[in-house]
């Protein structure tokens, strides 16, 4: 019970801070919007091309925006050395990881939903009747992205350069997440029944399970000196 309380303590703290300062979600949302608008000018798509490129475009916006949120996740703890403050308490290191993972995922997911609204408005994309499917992909994809991202965020703040190291570490590792999320989203846009949708979910799910286990085990070592 204590363990869960400690995790919820971190989540509550992060949400209170976010509600007050609105740093992470706003930054992600605005940045994601910029990406979408720039894409529109970069490709100048016809309406038929839009449909084929939509899933990729959507996820590129999510992924680039997500980096901002993840960077913020541990650099907020770095200020005033709060991370060390948490390490002083009798809370297992893994609780810090899981708490931060939860809040990064929540913030990223919320900004994704806003981005999705704008996207649909601007590009006239129709996910008719497949909303739960879409949200499930977004949910699993976001968690997978944050599972490694939270760990790398903690790694990046331990270095001299902090901010720009995170995307360099993150992008090659999350390629399976990107492939599976984009493909599963693409399947949902097709007219016929969704073929292969659940296969892609399986890949996402196995990525999440494998890396969640690995990251929980490895997180302790990141805080070592």
């Amino acid at each position: 019970m204590t363990y869960l309380n400690q995790i919820f303590g971190i989540i509550k703290k992060d949400i209170t801070t976010e509600l007050r300062a609105k740093e992470a979600v706003t930054a992600m949302l605005v940045f994601g919007l910029m990406v979408i608008v720039i894409f529109n000018f970069a490709f100048n798509l016809s309406s038929q091309e839009q449909i084929t490129i939509t899933p990729g475009l959507l996820w590129v916006a999510f992924i680039f925006a997500g980096i901002l949120g993840l960077n913020h996740s541990f650099s907020a703890e770095h200020e005033n050395n709060c991370l060390q403050g948490m390490m002083l308490t009798p809370m297992p290191r893994s609780a810090i990881y899981i708490g931060k993972l939860a809040t990064s995922s929540i913030f990223m997911f919320i900004s994704e939903i806003f981005m999705l609204f704008f996207f649909i408005w601007l590009f006239d994309v129709r996910f008719t009747g497949k909303w739960p499917h879409l949200f499930l992909v977004m949910f699993l994809g976001t968690i997978g992205y944050c599972i490694v991202g939270t760990l790398f965020s903690a790694i990046a703040v331990g270095t001299r350069v902090r901010v720009f190291l995170l995307p360099i570490l993150q992008f090659p590792i999350v390629i399976p997440v990107i492939i599976a999320s984009v493909e599963a989203t693409a399947v949902l846009l097709e007219e016929d029944a969704a073929i292969g949708y659940f296969d892609w979910l399986k890949i996402l799910l196995s990525f999440n399970i494998i890396f969640f286990t690995v990251c929980v085990l490895l997180f302790d070592y990141i805080l070592e000196e």
Partner: peptide, 16 residues
Amino acid sequence: YLSSVVGIIGFIDVLI
């Protein structure tokens, strides 16, 4: 410590 963690994650990731 930090690069060991990346080394392990990277290797598992290549397989996936």
